[in-house]
Simulated scan of single mutants.
Amino acid sequence: MDETLKILVVDDDEVDRMAVRRALLKTALDIDLIEANDGATAQSAVKSSQFDCILIDYFLPDQNGLELVKHLRRLEIDTPLVVLTGQGDEQVAVEVMKAGAADYLSKARIAPATLARSVQGAIRLHRAEQAAHVANQRLKQSNDQLRQQNDELAERRAQIETQNQELMKAYRLKSEFIATISHELRTPMNAIMGFSQLLLRQYPDPLSEQQLDMVKRIFDNSRNLLGMVNEVLDFSKIEANRLEIHPQDFQLSTLMLATVQELQPLALDKNLTLETHLPDPLNPLQMMTDPEFLRRILVNLISNAIKFTESGGVTICANPLDGDQIELSVQDTGIGIPPEYLETIFEPFRQVDQSLTRSHPGTGLGLAITHSLVKAMQGTISVTSQPEK
């Protein structure tokens, strides 16, 4: 210990106090020594000053050392105490140690090394106990803070759970509302398209060129709107987990050719070529999956390719892979997709051009529905593209 230690010696015998002082001065300790000749004086000194260690004679004129130790502890003075006595009574040693003394030393054994060791040991023990007490207090505070934070987190978790339940309820109601509205819109839209087709036949009376153009616009816009309504309805079914797959055996080549023939008018309206490449015309490519799902996937991808292609054409290919897998690809010569949008085009309501003035209208659900259908068929879908290609 390089610091100066302030020590109080309590003893009514001046010779004994001098012996303690001489022994301490012969040690390597830097000592500031204060003396008291009875318990009352010692108590006054302790109340007015802070000591590093107190050496107490067991036999004092006003009270014995055991009583003084107990009294100091009742005053919550936690300074390390070393009791000195002229007798080596072990019972006395046990009692003073129980009362709160750090050590017990016989005056006959007071030598510089012994006294220094006792004082240093008492101070080190006291400081270790203080450090442990501080650490325990900090640990208790940390535990209290953690307990409070856990309570706050539990409360917050309960709030989030309640909010999630409310959101799920609102989400369910929204899906049901969209499904209902979409279903109700299909009936009048089909009627509009049906009557438009009757007018386009020009029977029994022909239409003027202007009337024919207006009826054709009604039919085209009705068809586009019905397509959007169907997409919203299909997506609401997917969200509600009402998508059921019905696998059956069919010929892929036949389905592909029929689907391409169905969409051929869309390509002809834009002077685009629409080609189908099959690996072997003699091999019909038998498949066991849901043919309606696959037809919907092809319709979505091919019509999407036609919509975003102004010149050139669209090519549909089927390539058998290893095992029982088949790769279908739809390629076009359209406007292409920038790299930063490739990871998000299969998300619902995602479109590269989200502005109100975009030149290619739509709900942004076609590729999201396609992705869900492919996933339901345990397949995978990916995109490769770059602008203007």
Rank of each mutant, 00 (worst) to 15 (best):
L268H: 11
Q50I: 15
P291W: 03
L255P: 02
G334P: 05
K26A: 13
D205F: 13
L328Q: 02
R157W: 04
Q130F: 06
R295E: 15
I77E: 07
V215H: 01
E310V: 07
G65A: 06
V9Y: 00
V94H: 07
A158Q: 12
L115S: 02
K47I: 08
L272D: 14
D32V: 02
N271V: 13
M193A: 05
I192M: 10
L60A: 04
A191R: 14
I110G: 04
C317P: 00
Q87C: 08
M97S: 04
A170H: 08
M1I: 10
Y58R: 06
R242M: 13
R147S: 15
S359W: 08
D2G: 14
E35R: 05
L84V: 00
N300M: 06
Q325C: 07
D280S: 09
Q145S: 12
N271M: 10
Q149V: 10
A45F: 10
V215P: 04
Q331C: 12
R74V: 05
Q159N: 10
L212H: 11
L24Q: 06
S236G: 02
D57T: 05
T259G: 03
I7D: 05
V374C: 14
K237D: 12
I345T: 00
K174L: 14
I316D: 07
A305V: 00
L55Q: 04
P265W: 03
H71D: 15
L272T: 14
D78L: 14
E14W: 07
A132N: 11
E14Q: 13
L198N: 07
P361H: 08
T273V: 03
I326F: 03
V119Y: 03
E239C: 07
I369M: 06
R201A: 15
G362L: 00
N150L: 14
E155M: 11
D57A: 13
L199E: 07
D89V: 10
R74H: 08
L199N: 02
V215M: 02
L81V: 03
D32K: 11
Q202S: 09
P206V: 00
Q325M: 12
F235D: 06
K375C: 10
R73F: 06
L25D: 15
S329Q: 11
S222R: 08
A170N: 06
F346V: 00
R127V: 11
P281A: 13
Q210C: 08
S106N: 11
K237S: 08
R223A: 12
D213E: 15
D234W: 02
F250S: 01
D89W: 05
Q248A: 12
S182E: 04
E67T: 14
